[in-house]
Computed example of a mutant assay.
Amino acid sequence: MISGIFENCVGSKDIEATLKYWAEFGYREVNRGELWAEQAGLLYGHKSDLTSIRLQNGNSADHGLVRVMWWKQPRNEGLGDTLPVVVGSRWFASLTKDIYAVADAFTDDKANGGDWIYTEPVRAIEATGNQGTGLYNRFVGVREMFVIGCETRQAFFQRYNYNRPGYGTVEPSSPLSVSEGTHSSFITSDHALASFYADFFGLIPLETNGKRSGYQKPSTRQILMLCQGQEFYLSAFASPKTNVGLLQVYSPLYPTPDKREYSQPGSIGLSLFTYRVEDIAAFHQRVRSSTATSVTTIISNEFGELCFGLVAPDGMYWVIVG
């Protein structure tokens, strides 16, 4: 059995500054460990001494964590200010109780020297939503925004007039009232390859998979910073044990730069997603018989957990945690 997305892993230039940032969203350190360069190379495909810190938001211990990874010799500077929809781009989303407080925080920080690209909160209608026509027929849906920094790529959303219990838990101690990561996304060039995550990871594809979206939807246009005519296919995959920690796969229907090299372990910024499984030996055997490549042996990671790495057919690197 496989979890939802377990960790969103962030390559850091400055551990203390990065920990200070994530603390504002309610994350606290729960584990810390190190690997020598040779060990890191075996698991992550990048030979450098590594220090990692696992961060947890509230009581969400089985999905949506953040892992801060400090590489003595980083692979590269990461995605940086690359816009969301390019091949290899990654991001993850969190629920907030006050999206305008989050927006104000980034606006004020940018006005005082912070290096951010972000969108203003915009209304988005979900499948069961309602546009709203007035006082007695109110908007049902979410407001969303997207933030890009030198080490982070995050989406935030706030619900209006409906609830999904368990899909994002905001702890009272979170300074900006932000939950754990609820879903994580990446961009691939060939949407047919997304079937790998159902066929070999054992994730559950949603009924809406393969839908076409993009510029013609105003909220999507703003959040993903699209230009006229830019559209994509979108599919989502859930764990058999939970509907949170969702994986979303986007495939643009227009040419984009290939930035996969800048979102792999060793890169600065968001550069890896992990899953946790109950029987790592059986899962390892399953993946070895798949179309995945560069499947490592099962070894201990920096936290002493049994793990292995692999490259999916779409070229994205994954680490599976026992």
Rank of each mutant, 00 (worst) to 15 (best):
R90H: 06
V87N: 00
A103I: 05
W91N: 00
F92W: 13
V102C: 11
V87Y: 01
G88P: 06
A111W: 03
D115S: 07
I99C: 05
D115A: 05
A101M: 12
D104F: 14
D104T: 14
K110M: 10
A93T: 08
N112G: 11
G113K: 03
I99G: 09
W116C: 05
K97S: 06
G114F: 09
S89D: 12
G88K: 02
A101L: 08
K97G: 13
S89K: 12
D109R: 04
F106G: 11
A103Q: 11
S89G: 09
F92E: 02
A105P: 01
A103R: 07
I99M: 10
W91Y: 06
A101Q: 11
T96E: 04
W116Y: 15
R90M: 15
T96P: 03
F92G: 02
T107A: 14
G113H: 09
A111S: 15
Y100W: 08
F106T: 04
D104G: 14
W91M: 00
F92Y: 12
D108C: 02
G114L: 08
A103C: 10
F92A: 04
D104R: 13
G113D: 03
T107C: 11
T96F: 07
G114D: 03
K97A: 07
L95K: 12
R90T: 08
D98N: 13
D115Y: 01
W91V: 01
T96R: 07
G114E: 01
V87L: 01
A93K: 07
Y100M: 03
A93W: 04
N112A: 13
D109S: 06
R90W: 13
F106L: 11
D109A: 10
K110C: 03
K110G: 06
N112D: 04
F106Y: 15
V102D: 06
R90Y: 10
V87I: 08
K110E: 13
I99L: 04
A101C: 04
I99S: 02
A101T: 14
R90I: 12
A93F: 00
L95V: 13
T96I: 03
A101Y: 05
K110L: 11
T107F: 07
D98R: 04
T96A: 12
W91F: 03
G114K: 04
G114A: 06
L95E: 02
S89E: 09
Y100L: 05
G114N: 05
G114I: 08
W91I: 00
F106M: 12
D104M: 15
S89H: 14
W116G: 07
D108M: 11
G114R: 05
D98S: 04
N112C: 10
N112T: 13
A101V: 13
S89A: 15
V102W: 02
A101S: 14
